[in-house]
Design a protein around this nucleic acid. Structure first.
Lengths: 332, 332
DNA sequence: TTGTAGGCGTTATCAG
DNA sequence: CTGATAACGCCTACAA
């Protein structure tokens, strides 16, 4: 490895016998320059290996085309498939705008103190804009930081006190569809399995199930695979009559089903199961999981579009809501 | 949103009645400065909202603490769980070093021309170092770019012509274990399902199966879920006697099993199936998938450690090999 | 169309 | 310990 320092615009210009301004213009698309000299300079640049130093460029342009995705990390050991699929949509869309993605998971229970690092990044100009996933107190702090520093931001999910720049999903309606489906298919003893934070989902589920909604059993615990299994075990003890379940996310649903199959409970015959989010692995599962689709890829796309609009127009834009669908597969 | 420009070190220093050098020192940990003035300055900085401009800082320090992960993107619509889990290990480890991750998937079949964008990033100083996932021609081009520009790099997987800075996995041994297990459990008619690029896996599988290795059926196609299903269909037509299968990755294996179950073929009774990679969702599957574990998280960790060493020592370091395990679950 | 020179906001060197 | 001042490498009026 030759440790030769990279050639600077000054050295490069001298070699070519032109001014640094001319070199700069050759790469800028703006300044007036003859097509002929531009081509010459570009050719020579390739030959000498000259490339504009990105940091100097960023300093004058006050931006680095970098967008940060900040999200609460559920677990450190296992990917959060929900985020992963959103990220896919974000990244692909960002590429179209020639922007770069930085990934910043932060601890779900991070204190304001622990978030200082991320706030610093946000406020010192590291990002042209940020996309924040709601769901933790930290999310709010980071959005506040962006607001106070006048940094463009977009939010994924409902965040209290934030009415603009958000991509929302209609959880309530999605859960409604699930409840209605269970009712329409003659299920009698519904249960809801999930975390504590999904008021909307619970409400929608109740509405959908209609008249007998008061019979719904709420089994609330964590949001991971193992919690799904635990929920099945508990329900079998306390409410063995349950014959249909809405789970607050797909991984939970898969854990629930796996535990049921292990006990030789048939899905969907004995218990029908519907998940939430419709992550890709769900359709691979046996039985393939029915799920309320949040259209995660699209959601990421939408977040980017909103952010780009905020950056361009330099003012907040209206929030958008992505509609939910109920995708029926084998588990219900 | 008040669009006030951010306060600069100069303005800030003037307000405090000190020199900019002193302010700079208060944040640098290096220059000699009395603890008292440092505290005062830090307090005032909070009050005035002063933060050092990151771009100016990068310009002088010639680095931005940013590491890029470059990998060939299999599909645009679906996460690559293999990469996702590696990324988890990378990101977590990077955080310990206070480095930032940028994510750069590139098209699997990208021409050298299409890679120009990524080469540009690499060579203009956007990254302090890069981690490249092997597996596409593009991977090699990008490593070459890093080498020519004297940019620190690490490689995940085997890359022709690159003997240093790599994290390798012993695919051959992993496949050997699978073959041996099938032989030891009395399976008679083995098949291998996978892509064309896994010479090592095939070899290891043959060695492991031993004497009758020449009986192995090779069903080669794509690497996705649906290809797994297609493989099952084909094998049923051409070689219905097959009673054990090694799949080149887990998603393939899951597709294979799902198709088998659909046809009422019992797994593992009629056909035993082992996957490769041991991605997290595999253990959730029913039947839980046996798989050759590549320890993806650890692999990401290791890549970061190698890269950090390259950065620190400014010279290539020895490659490391992560051992494979065979994880037995229900599918075999 | 091209060149000159000042500025971007820091860090680092060298006096004091 | 603190303060001037010169880099850092590029962009961009302004001048020619």
């Amino acid at each position: 490895m030759t440790n030769r320092k990279k050639i600077t615009i000054k050295e490069f210009a001298e070699k070519l016998g032109v001014s640094i301004a001319t070199v700069s213009r050759a790469f800028s698309d703006k300044g007036r320059i003859s097509e002929k000299t531009r081509q010459e300079i570009i050719a020579k640049a390739r030959e000498y290996g000259y490339r504009a130093n990105i940091h100097a460029r960023n300093l004058t342009s006050r931006s680095n085309n970098t967008i940060a995705l900040l999200f609460p990390a559920i677990s450190h050991e296992e990917p959060d498939y929900f985020i992963t699929e959103i990220m896919l949509g974000i990244n692909e869309t960002l590429t179209k705008y020639r922007k770069i993605l930085q990934v910043h998971p932060f601890p779900l229970d991070a204190s304001e103190q622990e978030l200082e690092l991320y706030k610093d990044y946000i406020l010192n100009g590291s990002f042209e804009g940020i996309i924040v996933v709601a769901g933790a107190r930290g999310s709010n702090h980071l959005v506040s930081a962006a607001q106070s520093g006048n940094i463009p931001y977009a939010v994924i999910g409902h965040m209290s006190g934030v009415n603009e720049n958000s991509v929302l999903f209609d959880n309530e309606y999605g859960a409604f569809l699930a409840g209605k489906y269970f009712k329409d298919t003659g299920r009698q003893h519904p249960a809801y399995v999930g975390g504590h934070l999904d008021k909307r989902k619970k409400l929608g589920f109740q509405e959908g199930f209609g008249a007998n909604a008061n019979k719904i059993i709420f089994a609330e615990g964590g949001n991971s695979f193992r919690h799904g299994g635990m929920a099945l075990e508990n329900l079998q003890k306390t409410h063995p009559e349950v014959d249909c379940v809405l789970c607050a996310n797909d991984v939970l649903a898969i854990g629930f089903i796996k535990a049921a199959l292990t006990r030789n409970i048939k899905v969907p015959r004995d218990i029908a199961v519907i998940g939430f989010d419709d992550i890709k692995p769900s359709r691979y599962y046996t039985p393939a999981l029915s799920s309320v689709s949040l259209k995660l890829f699209e959601l990421g796309e939408c977040a980017v579009k909103i952010l780009m609009q905020v950056i361009k127009e330099e003012k907040p834009v209206n929030s958008e809501t992505i509609e939910c669908d109920l995708i029926l597969r084998q588990s219900s």
